[in-house]
């Protein structure tokens, strides 16, 4: 018999290394001869899209087109350390460092511009759309490109901005359990509808919904991509992926036995991006890489409970495990 059930799984997750461990990201922003800005940063692109959103952040601060950002990463000779692409920390931590580095460069650009423009001070000077100009008299202006050429002539290039960001976390007191081990936290909720076949133990996910707190969406489409990917991984974790550990040894060592969901197994995911800017985040952004998969398994297990009245406490819920649990339940 096929039985339907609804389940919700809600999580909150502290991003970053946490617990007082020094969590430092560094970045450099460099004005090049052609007016483009090179960002040197130790953030590693692992498919999560860090290159894209960090370039976006730099372009935003420098007020230049995305194409004028030269993003340099994954080459330790050419970049400062920005920590690992782990703990869902790069957007928040390294994003902050890039923002600081670009703000530093922006300040230096404006200071150099007022000298070139032969003004009394830098008050009222601003940088927008690749131009530095006086707000009260916009005809007093110089483009980043022109400025870079002047600086080159005066042998004042490269102009470098630097930024370093250290997250604020406080080790927990082992005695009292008090402290502030993480900041910020990211919130997530999944809802799924499952159909359980009580004769075969097969579980079909009919519909899934994800609402993801992101602080501020730097790139909404890429966040949706992360949600789709996180959901598929969470689904695999919930009902398919079984290492088959026996006395510490993996039985399922290949993808014939270690099953991951195929495109046919992953239903359409309805996605909601929740924006509530985080005051310490770059433009309000927070990390979401791991959070997007955490709520899936609890939601699926709750939905199974709703469908057949059996609490499963071990993942993955493979058909044989589910049938065994149903049998035991009937016996009791």
């Amino acid at each position: 018999m096929k039985k339907k059930g609804v389940g919700i799984g809600s999580t909150f997750y502290g991003t970053g290394y946490g617990n007082g461990f020094p969590d430092v990201s560094r970045a450099k922003a460099v004005l090049k001869e052609d007016g483009k800005v090179a960002v040197h940063v130790g953030a590693t692109e692992v498919g999560q899209g860090s290159k894209t959103i960090m370039s976006q952040m730099a372009a935003e601060v420098m007020s230049i087109p995305l194409n004028d950002i030269i993003f340099i990463c994954e080459d330790t000779k050419n970049m400062p350390d920005s920590g690992t692409a782990a703990a869902s920390r790069q957007t928040y931590n390294t994003g902050n460092a890039i923002k600081l580095a670009c703000e530093d460069l922006r300040k230096k650009v404006i200071e150099n511009a007022f000298k070139e423009l032969k003004l009394n001070s830098s008050v009222g000077l601003t940088l927008k759309n690749g131009e530095i100009y006086l707000k009260t008299l916009p005809s007093k202006n110089i483009s980043l490109k022109e400025l870079a050429l002047c600086l080159l002539k005066n042998k004042e290039l490269p102009l470098i901005g630097e930024g370093s960001f250290t997250a604020q976390t406080i080790e927990m007191d082992e005695e009292t359990g008090q402290g502030a081990p993480y900041w910020p936290y990211t919130f997530n909720v999944y809802g799924v509808i499952v159909e359980v076949d009580t004769e075969t133990g097969l579980i079909d996910i009919i519909k899934a919904v994800c609402a993801q707190d992101v602080g501020k969406a730097i790139n909404p489409e890429m966040i949706e991509g992360q949600m789709d990917g996180g959901f598929a991984m969470g689904l695999g974790y919930s009902i398919y992926e079984d290492l088959g550990l026996k006395e510490g040894k993996m039985k399922n060592k290949n993808f014939t036995n270690y099953l991951i969901p195929t495109a046919l197994d992953v239903p359409e995911l309805e996605k909601f991006i929740i924006e509530d800017p985080e005051s310490t985040g770059p433009f309000g952004a927070k990390g979401i890489g791991e959070p997007v998969m955490l709520g899936v398994a609890p939601a699926v297990l709750n939905a199974i409970y709703d469908a057949v009245g059996v609490r499963i406490t071990q993942v993955p819920v493979t058909p044989d495990r589910l049938l065994r649990a149903l049998k035991e339940e009937r016996r009791e």
């Binding site: 075969t200 097969l202 398919y240 195929t262 046919l264 197994d265």
Partner: peptide
Amino acid sequence: KLGLRKALAIAR
């Protein structure tokens, strides 16, 4: 057929 997923599933 009972396979453990909807595609690329060896018959159980």
